[in-house]
Write a protein that binds this DNA or RNA. Structure first.
Lengths: 106, 106
DNA sequence: TTCGTATATAACGATATAATAATTTATACC
DNA sequence: GGTATAAATTATTATATCGTTATATACGAA
C-alpha cells in the first residue's frame, strides 16, 4: 500500500509517550529485564510490560529469555534515523548509575 | 523543569497524526491557506482548522492574514531536527501539482 | 510437586483524541 | 447596510490510550 504517511504517523505516535521514550533511553545504555525497567521508571510491572509489548510489536525492541528473566534490547536496524534521535534522550546515565548502586546484578 | 522527556513525548505525539503530518508536508512546499489544505487533504474545514491550531500552539507553524484568507507557513527555527525529518515526507509534490492544475491562485 | 519470583495477559475505568455537525466571527464586495 | 466567502469555535460522539487491579503463565529452586 501507499500510505507511508500513516505508517510514519503510527511510529511517531508510538514514540510520543513519556514512558516508552524513557524505556528506549534506558535500553540504549544496556539490555535490561522488565524488573529493572520497572524499578528505574518507578512504574508498575504490568504498565512496563504493556509498553514493552507495543515497542516489540513495532519492531523497535526485541526480547531474549534468560532463565526466568526476559531481557529487552533495542532493535533499531530497520530505523536508522531513530538511532540518532534516541541518542539525544536525556537522563539516561543518571538513572542507570542508581541501578548500579543497588547492585542487583553485577 | 527537568522533564525534557515529557516535552519530547508531547512533540512526538503531536507529529504522530496522519493529518498533521500531511499538513506539515504540504507547507514544506509552500505557504497555504486553510481552504487549500482542506482541498488537498480532502478533509473538512473544521478538522483542518483544529489541526492547524494544534500545530500553531506547539510553535510548528505560524499564520499570516492576507485579506480574508489565513495563510499558514512552517516555523521550524526552534526545531532544527524536524526540518530534516520533514523533508522525508512522501507525496508532497504530487498533490501540490494538482493544486496548480486547479489554478485557484497564480 | 510445591513455592516463590518474573513476566504476561485480561478486564476495567478514566482521560484524551479525532472527526463531524452546527454555529459564530471576520472580511470583502455590492 | 446585506450577502457571500473564509476561517475559527463550540458541542457532541466515537474511539483510542494509559494506568491500575486482578489473574494467569513460565521458570527455577527446594
Amino acid at each position: 500500500m501507499n500510505d507511508k504517511l500513516a505508517e510514519m504517523a503510527e511510529l511517531l505516535k508510538l514514540l510520543g509517550d513519556r514512558t516508552r521514550l524513557a524505556i528506549l533511553g534506558l535500553l540504549q545504555e544496556r539490555d535490561l529485564c522488565v524488573g529493572d525497567i520497572v524499578e528505574l521508571l518507578g512504574t508498575s510491572q504490568p504498565n512496563a510490560s504493556q509498553h514493552l509489548r507495543k515497542l516489540k510489536s513495532a519492531g523497535l525492541v526485541k526480547e531474549t529469555k534468560r532463565g526466568q528473566w526476559v531481557f529487552y534490547s533495542l532493535n533499531l536496524d530497520d530505523f536508522p534515523d531513530l538511532k540518532i534521535f534516541l541518542s539525544q534522550l536525556p537522563g539516561r546515565k543518571e538513572r542507570l548509575r542508581s541501578l548500579s548502586i543497588l547492585g542487583k546484578r553485577s
